[in-house]
Design a protein around this nucleic acid. Structure first.
Lengths: 141, 141
DNA sequence: TATTAAATAAAAATAGTTATCGATTAGGGG
DNA sequence: CCCCTAATCGATAACTATTTTTATTTAATA
């Protein structure tokens, strides 16, 4: 595993324990935590960490392309260390957000660029629905 | 044009001038205004109108399926009287939000339902990029 | 027109995020 | 390896979008 410290340094960021903690946490999860969740997860092991620092750190990371911000319509933003654009599913019952990979989107990009006069830079596809787990739970109940 | 008052009444809403004003405004625009924009647009002709009422009205409308809420990653939500799910383009330069219609999405729905265990209810596709107008402006500059 | 439940305006509260600022610390030069 | 300086940190205040509260007004119906 490549050193987080080095990645940060390459991006021109001063390396601090707080930044390493935030970045590592995002690397090691497939959940898509928001700032508050990240803060609560790190607080026990990093008692010297404030919510404001988490926000500021995420903002730096976002601008340097280290993380991706994701808004699925909740009050707050979620963050993803996978920075390549990719679709997500959002379960409207349990709120779980999952990654998704679909080749069909490149076709759509091409179509929009050609037919409309719009240069697509990045896309965000969110599929809202009910995940299998919740569907099963509903049948039982 | 069908009476707005009647539409509201059919949905079980009490008909008030404020609600008529908000709904008509959304019907007559292809912009995707947020609550603040709606309020500012209506204020001159409806001096007796508050921002809180706009928010509450939009919330009622949303729950009754009269409008669709759209979050393109700004601080606030935008609203659309076209309630059928449809993709949007967002120009990252001028901020303009435009509607888009793509048949390819039904294929994607089907694929996700079959291959993953996820029941798709509604989708939101946002294509971020630069619109033709801004691209031309950039060339000139 | 009287009744009544619902809607309104204004203000206060709340949630998420950002800005401020003095204290602290990372990292290059010596 | 230590010192210096600029960058970053944490705490808290401020800010923005939205929701709730409350007292008042209004629409719908009898």
């Amino acid at each position: 595993m490549k050193e987080t410290a080095q990645i940060l340094r390459e991006k021109g960021l001063k390396v601090t324990p707080q930044r390493i903690a935030v970045y590592n946490m995002l690397l090691n999860t497939i959940e898509h935590p928001n700032a508050e969740t990240i803060y609560k997860a790190l607080e026990p092991t990093n008692p010297t960490m404030s919510l404001a620092t988490v926000y500021k750190t995420l903002d730096y990371f976002k601008q340097l392309g280290l993380v991706q911000e994701l808004n699925v319509g909740e009050g707050s933003s979620r963050y993803d260390a996978v920075v390549k654009c990719h679709p997500h599913t959002v379960c409207m019952q349990c709120g779980k957000v999952q990654d998704l990979y679909l080749d069909e989107l490149t076709e759509i990009h091409k179509k929009v660029e050609e037919e409309l006069d719009f240069e697509v830079n990045c896309e965000q596809l969110i599929l809202y629905g009910i995940c299998g787990k919740c569907r099963n739970k509903n049948k039982e109940g």
